[in-house]
Amino acid sequence: MKQDPNIQKKVEEALNSLDGIQRAQPGPYFFTRLTARLQNDKKNVWENFGTFISRPLIAFATILVIVLLNSMAFFKNDNPVKPTIIEQNDPALNNAYDVASNTTNNTILTIWNPEDEQSIEK
């Protein structure tokens, strides 16, 4: 294709138009605006978290995960924990209540002694 010298001149001018370009600068008080934005971002952390968690997809996924974990815990529990008898024989506790562990039953019997009850009635 025949090249038009006028067009070629314009093309060259355009391609060289960035020679000697100076660096552009942001508007004045850039740092002030930046710190304001940083402060604003700090304040919005909880707000952003709230917005994120309240998204329908996130909320639904969270509920689904909780339900799944519960179901897994329920169905996979092959060895249920057997109730264990904890022997309470703490001397400090016994002293505090002034009741020895081996006398507990006696004390209870004493408290609920039916004979005493009858004697009181008499």
């Binding site: 001018e13 355009a14 138009s17 960035l18 020679d19 000697g20 370009i21 552009a24």
Partner: peptide, 19 residues
Amino acid sequence: EHPGVTLDKKESSVVLFKA
């Protein structure tokens, strides 16, 4: 229009930036 381009090259630079 890039603010750092010299005045005599502004017109050509507008076309170049578009390209």
